[in-house]
């Protein structure tokens, strides 16, 4: 379990993290969302025990990160931003070093090394200095280091940043595969990632926690939640047909691709009514979709007023 209480970090007058409290239970994948400089990394650094909080505190698996740092660090795996590692070492030497520092010895050492090397498909680069590896492989070495001791808690700061789509997919699959019995906290500003891996999302901006909900709940806050989008061969006809649906609050037409979006009145469902109206008027549509809500829009609405100052 991770628990933070009024976690705060100040740099002089600047408050980077401002009284953040949350709890994460095993099985949850918590996504930290927020604009750059929102305090995501600072929060993660405090939980990982790298930075000391100015006030408040954090507990990892019941261990206070300040008063029992060694126990807390033992129970967590941390991937710092940018996945730093010792460039002159080979992945094998680097992972063996991590295993030794973490006190993994004997059979367990070989078993764990084989496991992470297999999971992250590092076999082909084991003997190559990390400096010479591609960004994707460097990131995978960083992830391997974080999960080497099979920790109950994983903190991953932008684990997919800079990866190509295939590599992103692989990392997300890995996170999903580990998620059932672990606590995983990831930070990202890629909103599709929240859907792909997170069971819960926290939005931080200006050092404050502004929202804490499941991705689906966040989407319901979107203006687009329950809206119906369609592309018709004849936009005018479609528009006329939609005008007959009573529960529609407003209609917007995308000026570029003429895609029509109909917004329902509060609390109304319009999908069936819209599709019936289109049929009744014999409007041919090439596409008709119910919108779940757009996270990027929710993200902007929540964080926009806060984007002033702050630091990473």
């Amino acid at each position: 379990m991770i628990e933070t209480t009024q976690l705060t970090k100040r740099y002089g007058n600047l408050t980077a993290v401002d009284g953040i409290s949350f709890k994460v239970e095993p099985g949850q994948v918590l996504g930290f969302l927020g604009p750059n400089g929102a305090g995501k990394s600072t929060t993660m650094k405090m939980i990982a025990g790298f930075l000391a909080p100015t006030s408040g505190g954090a507990k990892v698996c019941g261990y206070d990160v300040e008063s029992q740092p060694i126990e807390a660090k033992r129970s967590l795996g941390y991937l710092p931003e940018g996945a730093p590692s010792y460039g002159e070492m080979t992945p094998r030497a680097f992972l063996e070093f991590i295993a030794d520092v973490r006190g993994i010895a004997g059979d367990a050492r070989k078993r764990r090394l084989d496991d992470v090397i297999g999971r992250l498909q590092l076999e082909g680069v084991l003997a190559q200095p990390i400096d010479t590896l591609s960004k994707g492989f460097k990131r995978r070495v960083g992830l391997a280091q974080a999960i080497l001791h099979d920790p109950p808690v994983l903190i991953l700061d932008e684990p997919t940043d800079g990866l190509d789509p295939n590599q992103k997919h692989e990392v997300r699959a890995l996170i999903n595969a580990m998620s059932h019995d672990k606590i995983i906290v990831i930070s990202t500003h890629i909103l599709e990632e929240v859907h792909a891996v997170c069971t819960r999302a926290v939005i931080i901006a200006g050092g404050k926690l502004l929202a804490d909900a499941t991705p689906a709940e966040l989407e319901t806050r979107s203006r687009y939640h329950g809206a119906v989008s369609l592309t018709a061969t004849n936009t005018g006809e479609a528009r006329a047909a939609l005008a007959r649906v009573a529960d529609i609050e407003s209609i917007e037409i995308d000026p570029q691709d003429h895609r029509i979006t109909a917004f329902p009145k509060k609390g109304r469902a319009i999908f069936v009514a819209v599709s019936d109206a289109l049929k009744a008027q014999n409007v041919t549509v090439s596409e008709l979709a119910l919108e779940a809500g757009r996270l990027d829009e929710v993200f902007r609405t929540i964080t926009q007023p806060q984007i002033k100052g702050g630091r990473a």
Binding site: K45, F50, R74, P80, G82, P84, Y86, I98, R102
Partner: peptide, 12 residues
Amino acid sequence: SGTIELLLTLPI
């Protein structure tokens, strides 16, 4: 290189 963050978040 940022490895200081790695080193100091190991259990030492």
